[in-house]
Amino acid sequence: MTLWLERHVPKLVLAPTFIAILLFVYGFIAWTGWISLTKSRLMPKYDIEGFQQYDRLFAAPRWDVAMNNLYIFGALFIVISMVLGLLLAILLDQKIRTEGVLRTIYLYPMALSMIVTGTAWKWILNPGLGLEKVVQGWGFENFTFDWLVNPDYAIYTIVIAAVWQASGFVMALFLAGLRSVDTEIIKAAQVDGIPTTRIYTAIIIPSMAPIFLSAFIVLSHLAIKSFDLVIAMTNGGPGYATDLPATYMYAMAFSRGDLGQAASSAMIMMLVVFTIVVPYLYSELRTRND
């Protein structure tokens, strides 16, 4: 008996986690998937009716806005954060004496809650008392900056705040990448008189391809899950102009009482995440096992 126990103890230790993950992750995904195929409204119903929730979802103008916003927000957030992060990393990699302090400053927003970030930027971008008034005070009397309450531009204010929060993190990723590039090759190139910009574009940046991929995965994952920032800054408004899939799902689940729509929108979100993450994780696990 004790021998059996001794042999199986590792399995027993892992078992509770295994069961919890099966239930709370995979079982729950299955449950949500099931509900997305029913006519559930306020209460869950379990008779499968087919894909009509998805038909309703794709026909809903509000979902359309949410997906469109995700493309705009996601693309701008990812591209700007990557460019800014790479630029900062390269600038910091020039034997800067105050590097430690600067790195701390660039990265601290990542320690904040998105609600805090949203609260701060909502105030800074406040039309009337915020940035607008500052610039007007500098003598530009006709300057207006009302993006936060303008349905056509409000989504860009979310981009501004999100980039502020995450770009320092991308900088940290790239800086670690720059430090791991083989210094011998760079020295050789410098001896050969190759200009610095060429060294960066032809040697250093291409060798950091895996880091670009990681940064892309992390940022796109953050973009799809973005919820807190929108709630704090615009609460999805004006109207539903800044809705993202995450806020759409939440509104359907908890304020509109439409479980079928909540479930189907959640499943679409998962699909988007998985098409991005699964190939990446698969290759990561493969290379690790080799």
């Binding site: 992750v25 949500t32 869950p44 899939p245 995450a246 909540a262 959640a266 499943m267 696990l285």
Partner: peptide, 26 residues
């Protein structure tokens, strides 16, 4: 053990919206 680890890793990446409703029920 590796399969369990892979299952755990995938769990890190799910958008939590997909578990909100069943979690509330649970």
């Amino acid at each position: 053990a590796n399969i369990i680890f892979a299952l755990l890793l995938f769990g890190c990446f799910i958008p939590f919206q997909v578990v909100l409703l069943p979690m509330a029920k649970m």
